[in-house]
Design a protein around this nucleic acid. Structure first.
Lengths: 269, 269
DNA sequence: TCTGGATATGCAAAGGTTTGCAGACGCAAG
DNA sequence: CTTGCGTCTGCAAACCTTTGCATATCCAGA
């Protein structure tokens, strides 16, 4: 039912190869012919069949983006940015959420590999071995972690942590708690390293709490601990945990200062 | 480089059609042959080429999911649910975010149509004409809106609004503000309708504020208005707007009650 | 022994496109 | 007039699978 290249060729009186070139290499076809072909294509509602094109060129023009958890507010902006960048290059982003479930990850890796030209991976705790396996099947770029031999894009979370600690010590805080991220995450290690170093430099005390799940629940769980500790400021691994912590402290009866006060959190994934 | 069905056929000494059947209709092939083929396939790392398969069957086993804005916390759970349901049926969900940009929507519609078997659409303000156009190219299900002639899945936001208003009037509130959603959204109309009716029934006053952008900013913008109004409770269209409103009131110096107090909001998209 | 059905496999066409090669044509330079 | 080049278009193979049909084999029943 949908129009094929052949229909367009017939309608415009040229060979299918000319129609093909009209779309994929316009400079090779006479402007006059080109506009006639385009008119017929438009009229018939023709759109090149992606499957056929992918079959012969070996490129799908799709890029996979694997994220750990879409519901984590860290990801949406990243997804949007990737989509926008892809769109401008005539690619599409294929987002998938693993829920950090190894079974899902495993299956995804193979399923995805066959239908995308490359994969962006932002899943801090996916196992290295799975990542290496994936990288053998498809070009891979990892985000916010480092895997030897693979290209990666990382945020300077260390710098962020340092700035946050400096801000807090600048406000006079001498005892800061770091609500740490999950075990095995590169950003988590990096933040801890940088925060610890910054605190030492400023001669302040920094207590690391964790590792924790990078979720609201992970924050709630440390509320009591944070309070007992007597720290006057907390640096949280990410927004969700900060929210959870505030919630936890609140329900213990220890309200967090509001916006104008001196408690602060920075975020990363 | 990647192994094809032919390589597997050669390795296992059968015809390619047998290999094909091993994967797509296992019951048609002798168990003995089948396991030999599977072993060879495994060994060669063979995976059926999705493009070739799609080309001949006309099915991609992909489903598109168009959402207005991934960053709106309303969507991630919806996306996850769709992905999970799809996964169990051996389908993949292809999420795309339109940013409610008509140009993006327009382009997407066509680009997507050619590479998915169907589309789930949850974009409250996409134009009806574009939706109808899309529905002519690909099977379409709309979410949280109603378009004549198209199957749809809607939440009972009216019921939610009614319950919220009843809750508030039950607590004694006589004057409630409804921080309304965007113009042209089905859920927005529905909530207004139900909330108004519920307020009338309870003999309370309900003032509708809006339409507004369904964002934090949309909430912030009505803060002053809400305060001037003297309403004792506010019902917000969604979480983002509620957050924005609280923020706005806060910066005007009118703190919102915390969790234990009687202000409430319900959410929808 | 023959017939007929069930089971398992092979054969080949088909699906819509891209692309290297070759042919046609026009035109300028010699 | 010939040669050569540049521009445009046609031809046909190739990409990898699926699937209707035909063939082969085996076994049970008569």
């Amino acid at each position: 039912m949908p129009a094929t290249i052949r229909d367009v060729a017939r309608a415009s009186g040229v060979h299918i190869s000319t129609v093909s070139r009209t779309f994929s290499a316009p400079h090779l076809v006479n402007p006059e012919t080109r506009s006639r072909v385009l008119a017929c294509a438009e009229h018939l509602g023709y759109r090149p069949n992606r499957a056929a094109r992918a079959l012969i060129t070996g490129r799908t023009h799709n890029i996979g983006l694997i994220v750990a958890d879409i519901a984590n507010p860290f990801f949406p902006p990243l997804i949007k940015a990737a989509e926008s960048a892809a769109r401008h290059r005539d690619y599409h982003i294929f987002v998938t959420d693993t829920n950090e479930d190894p079974a899902v990850e495993e299956e995804l890796v193979h399923a995805l590999a066959k239908q995308v030209d490359g994969v962006l991976l932002c899943s801090p705790r996916m196992s290295n071995s799975l990542i290496e396996q994936l990288s053998r099947e498809v070009p891979l770029v990892v985000i916010n972690r480092q895997v030897t031999g693979l290209p990666s894009v990382v945020m300077d979370v260390g710098q962020g942590a340092r700035l946050a600690v400096e801000h807090l010590t600048g406000l006079g805080h001498r005892h800061i708690a770091l609500l740490g991220g999950p075990r095995g995450s590169w950003t988590s290690r990096e933040i801890r390293r940088a925060a610890t170093a910054a605190a030492r430099t400023a001669d302040a005390e920094l207590t690391v709490l964790g590792p924790n799940q990078p979720t609201e629940h992970g924050g709630i769980g440390q509320a009591e601990h944070v309070h007992r500790l007597g720290a006057t400021a907390v640096l949280a691994y990410n927004d969700l945990m900060a929210i959870g912590l505030i919630e936890g402290l609140d329900s213990l009866g220890y309200g967090c200062p509001r916006r104008s006060a001196s408690s602060a959190s920075t975020t990363s994934r």
